[in-house]
Design a protein around this nucleic acid. Structure first.
Lengths: 235, 235
DNA sequence: CGTAATCTTGAGTCACGTCAATTAACGTGG
DNA sequence: CCACGTTAATTGACGTGACTCAAGATTACG
């Protein structure tokens, strides 16, 4: 697997990645049905029997898991082309998936998928590459959550989001946040209040400007990235 | 992929998992060479061209990545049967791998591995299952790092370690720690000093007893597990 | 037995979690 | 268009968990 990243994989989409090639998507769609979900509607919940694998057609999906303490951790946010539900444990979903707005999904029976993969080694190989990419993403998150303070985590998230033209307008230097402070907190492993305070501090430091709650102006991407070089504690 | 976990996968080995079936290991060994590493010797470093994939034959390997701040995060510790180096990004290793003691590894050329997988869909499928397992493990770590305080993280680690008979003796209820406070800190996303203090607190609370720096007595697994239900802050 | 590495403890300070209250944004019906 | 209710966002106050620097204590090892 030296050529583990195809050209398609090479795009700078650190976070919200659309990684299946059009060809692969065609294969899948042959056995897929299109289903629709409304805002904040559950696609499936952790602990329930796993029946389907999904691919995002449009919209946004939140993948999360509940901690023993009761609070939930957002594992990732998925966009068009991303797949999920493909790795149940003992036939049970380990995560919950929730549509974050009007969202359409391709849905495939896991048994049919397995059958397809058995007869299409090339597709199976692409799934392997895809899984490898997801694993690297997950490791990046381990790094962020393990080593960075909340300001740095937020900066990392904003920088990831800026790679997506759906959310970032380089002309206006404006970044729109497609999620609530609560979701942001659950993603960064902190509270919504702290998210707000950190946004306020970044604004005071001139790294961002809050045009509204969900719309930021980012004067300099580099300045934001420089935050990541600092230590966790600033004595 | 409804049957994504084989019997082999079902063992309770949350953290240090040996997941390749004997049969798969045989296939790999046909094109593998055995190599040996001494304590604290680098197998490869992040940023260097990726040439090989490895499987641990004996010993222990630390997978880590350096943060922009300079500190390193330990992604995982690998034991016999675990594989690594299989997911370079653009032909370059994204993590560093270090032998933590006398360690023997099976080494396979990535190009040869790719060739083998191309002709052995069954093996490729097992790689896919393996990757899915690793991904779930990584997601568990995201949960731990995102939601738990250091005491809880340490407890989670100890509980994981207790699943391994190499380190835990249920008769004596003794758990041996095969790593330094530094490695432990880098794994838990904290400092070695804090690790020590947390160990001291757990001892004061009767959850563990430090027989020596690297040997713990754990009276009750359940009591330790109950820690995880608490909140991050104990006001 | 000496030197270095590892482990432990201490002191001080900040970052952040939590509870509480206020303000802003948004939709809905009159 | 406005009154109202509901949710999201923000700000305040406060305590504490954990980071950092520093200095001992213990262990490992040649």
């Amino acid at each position: 697997m030296p050529e583990i990243r195809t050209r398609q994989f090479r795009q700078a989409r650190p976070h919200f990645a659309n990684l299946l090639t059009p060809e692969q998507q065609v294969h899948l769609r042959e056995i897929a049905t299109l289903v629709e979900f409304g805002g904040n509607e559950a696609v499936f919940s952790e602990g329930t029997p796993a029946e389907f694998m999904y691919m995002v057609a449009s919209g946004m999906v939140r993948i999360s898991r509940r901690a023993a303490s009761g609070r939930q951790q957002v594992i990732s946010f998925l966009l068009s082309g991303d797949i999920f539900g493909q790795l149940p444990e003992e036939g049970v979903y380990v995560n919950s998936a929730t549509a974050m707005g009007l969202t359409t999904l391709y849905r495939v029976h896991l048994s049919q998928l397995e059958e397809l993969l058995r007869h299409e080694p090339q597709l199976q190989r692409n799934f392997l590459l895809r899984m490898a990419f997801d694993l690297r993403q997950a490791q990046k998150r381990i790094l962020v959550l393990g080593q960075q303070n909340v300001s740095q985590r937020l900066a990392s998230f904003l920088l990831d989001l800026m790679e997506h033209e759906d959310f970032y307008d380089p002309q206006q230097k404006q970044l729109s946040l497609p999620l609530s402070r609560f979701d942001l907190g659950d993603y960064l492993g902190t509270s919504p209040e702290t998210v707000v305070r950190v946004l306020a501090r970044l604004e005071k430091d001139g790294l961002i400007r809050r045009l509204s709650a969900r719309l930021l102006l980012i004067p300099s991407q580099d300045a934001l990235a420089r935050l990541l070089r600092g230590r966790r504690r600033n004595d």
